[in-house]
Write a protein that binds this DNA or RNA. Structure first.
Length: 675
DNA sequence: CGAATGTGGCTTTTT
DNA sequence: GCCACATTCG
């Protein structure tokens, strides 16, 4: 049915033709570069937004502007890196334009894909009640399939489950073949190519059979939906007529392709990002996306935001020096009007603890000077880099929140409890069944595996459990009773269900962990979160898509938020800013990490990561590096500041050497020795 | 045989 | 502190 379609123009009435009266004075609120981006016309646009250049402000005003000029808010799609940042932006837009902004669809790629697949997923084989696997679940399922296929040959060195998941994920996200990834990035496993391919097939089949979807599937299946199902494709592109993408430098090929498909009907796509801040290559992102956007979307208008509103000139000077050496980037010249400020400090510490104590002491000094704790952050390359500091801060009763690192949702006890909830919600969920069964006394891998087969086939799984005799008989009966009480007629709310499982699980928890009181607090936290969800499904998918990042400490004093400093990985600090920023472990071998010494691309990414860290600071910036640190994994003695400072003139810093009070080398002694 | 318990190796960054 | 593998226990 390829009928010619003749366009018929609906003419504007004189009233409609007159320029709409806008309710906000955009020109007064924005600088000329921002204004140009905010008021851009239809068609593709690329906004290159330097660090601290008001990128979020620009997006917020863009949303407001679109609504202001007559676009229906529900036709706007705002894709961000975390759901929290989407919410914040829409709230700010709401302050400008009113409650209409609430109807804008905002979230991460994954959360939007989740929503669309629950609605239209049947076309690609998904029932609306599918279960989302987080990374750990995906790994467990891979391990399960591996043992079913008998692939754990003991003679050869087979990659562990985490590595396998990484390989599969990278292949999906970069749109490259499995062979390619293995040969080029995991060469030492090239022997196992066939086995890996077989495993990938099995993993895929297991997911589809059981209505399980991992993070990558959310994107893969959305793309499939858009390319294969005309109806869904039309419905979706009619819905989202204006697409805004934040942090575009951290999207991967798969996401770029999803955007291309979403925008195919209208090309109204504005992406915002900074190629110099691309730091997620390890999960398949490529800054090529932002470099090649104009080629992918012909007719792209490029806007650049170059005025920095965040940092003082001395900090910006350092940042510019660091990024100047980058191999490839969009040319931009960041400038600021905040000319005055202290020089960044580079401090050498005699060991890790000296570094921690320096920070604690300096924070107290800064507090005297009027910098509140909430305006202080300590940033680091890897989550464990802050362990010593955490102890030191606790000792001095300096309150902090830690971001990044192990999520509370990923801890074994929380996953255990949730697994029970999940088997009730999706009785096909093999991963959760396995987990639940293994917790029962007398059940090991073999029995769990056997039961799994029977459970999935049976119409009444709880009966199957009750019929088991032997060592595990009683335990399985208890399990059956607990699960049945959840799914039964009671119509329990999510929080009540969590409570029921908790009662069943508590003895197991106490048996398994000596530190169970701490873990009980996590479960209480989970219960609190559950209270906000009438539906179990929503609770489970929200937890998988946006895990709450704090541990139990977070919930205990939520109202004192403003009095705590932040400890964060640099990755988790993306987009944030503080008056005072400490970057610790700025020692070559930790930062850049020795893992990145292999390829130039990895090294370039470390440089950008360092750039991101430095540009978080508004006024005070401290870089610290311990010396004489023995690195076990490499066998190297680390003592030199990061190589990214090699070409930076010493005049751009104030340099400190930390000396213990009362030691042989107090200040004067040190000088005498040194000169 | 299969479950429970013990031991050695290594640990980046995350939707 | 967590995972894979080794050994002991029922």
């Amino acid at each position: 049915m390829n009928r010619e379609i003749t366009p018929y123009i609906l003419k504007r009435t004189p009233e409609e033709a007159a320029p709409r009266k806008l309710s906000i004075d955009y020109a007064a609120a924005l600088n000329p570069q921002q204004l140009a981006a905010v008021t851009a016309g239809d068609g593709p646009s690329l906004v290159i937004a330097g660090a601290g250049s008001g990128k979020t402000r620009t997006l917020v005003y863009r949303v407001a502007y679109l609504i202001d000029s007559g676009v229906d808010p529900s036709n706007i799609l705002l894709l961000t890196f975390t759901r929290k940042s989407a919410q914040e932006m829409l709230q700010r837009a709401g302050e400008l334009i009113g409650v209409r902004s609430e109807r804008v669809c905002g979230g991460t790629f994954h959360s939007v894909a989740n929503m669309l697949l629950r609605r239209y997923g049947r076309a690609v084989g998904l029932e609306p009640g599918f279960t989302i696997l987080d990374r750990g679940d995906a790994e467990d399922l891979i391990a399960l399939v591996r043992s079913q296929l008998g692939l754990n040959e003991k003679d050869k060195r087979f990659p562990r489950k985490g590595t396998i998941a990484e390989i599969f994920s990278k292949s999906e996200n970069t749109l490259r073949s499995l062979d390619d990834i293995v040969v080029e990035e995991f060469g030492h496993f090239a022997d196992h190519l066939d086995a890996l391919a077989q495993l990938q097939k099995g993993y895929h089949a297991a997911k589809r059979q059981r209505q399980l979807v991992d993070y990558d599937d959310l994107l893969v299946l959305l793309r499939q939906l858009l390319t294969q199902d005309q109806q869904a494709r039309q419905a979706i592109s009619r819905l989202y007529r204006y697409i805004l993408v934040d942090e575009y430098q951290d999207t991967n090929r798969l996401q770029a392709d999803v955007i291309r498909n979403l925008a195919a009907a209208h090309q109204n796509v504005m992406v915002v990002g900074d190629d110099s801040q691309s730091i997620y290559a390890f999960r398949g992102a490529t800054f090529r996306n932002i470099m090649e956007f104009p080629a992918l979307f012909p007719g792209t208008t490029i806007y650049k935001l170059e005025e920095n509103y965040r940092s003082t000139q001395p900090i910006l000077n350092l940042a510019n020096c660091i990024i100047e050496e980058a191999a490839e980037k969009y040319a931009k010249h960041l400038f600021t009007r905040k000319l005055d400020g202290p020089l960044p400090t580079l401090a050498e510490a005699t060991g890790e603890n000296a570094q921690s104590r320096f920070i604690a002491q300096k924070i107290l000094e800064l507090r005297e000077e009027g910098v509140p704790l909430s305006e202080v952050a300590v940033l680091f390359r890897s989550s464990f880099h802050s362990f010593d500091l955490e102890i030191e801060l606790s000792r001095r009763e300096l309150p902090f929140v830690k971001r990044g690192g192990v999520k509370f949702i990923e801890t074994a006890h929380v996953k255990d409890l949730l697994a029970h909830l999940r088997v009730v919600a999706n009785p096909l969920d093999a991963v959760s069944w396995h987990r639940v069964l293994m917790l029962v006394e007398g059940v090991g891998p073999k029995k769990a595996q056997d039961l799994l087969g029977a459970l999935v086939k049976s119409a009444s799984p709880y009966q199957v459990l009750r019929e088991v005799s032997g060592r595990s008989g009683q335990g399985l009966k208890n399990l059956a009773n607990t699960l049945e009480s959840l799914s039964g007629s009671g119509e329990l709310g999510t929080a009540d269900q969590v409570n029921h499982i908790y009662e069943y699980y508590l003895p197991i928890l106490k048996e398994q962990y000596d530190d169970y009181p701490k873990r009980i607090r996590d479960l209480d936290h989970l219960h609190t979160i559950a209270e906000g969800y009438p539906e179990v499904d929503g609770f489970l998918s929200d937890l998988a898509l946006e895990p709450p990042d704090g541990s139990a400490i977070d919930v205990e004093a939520p109202d004192r938020d403003d009095e705590r400093m932040v400890l964060s990985t640099i990755h988790s600090a993306k987009g944030l800013e503080w008056q005072c920023v400490f970057v610790i472990w700025v020692v070559d071998g930790k930062f850049p990490s020795i893992y990145s010494f292999v390829t130039d691309e990895d090294m370039e990414e470390e440089r950008r990561l360092f750039y991101v860290a430095v540009t978080r600071a508004k006024r005070h910036l401290y870089l610290t590096y311990p010396i004489n640190v023995f690195d076990k994994s490499s066998g190297m003695l680390l003592s030199k500041p990061t190589r990214f400072l090699d070409h930076v003139s010493p005049s751009m810093f104030e340099q400190l050497a930390l000396i213990e009070e009362g030691s042989h080398a107090d200040w004067r002694g040190y000088r005498d020795d040194a000169y």
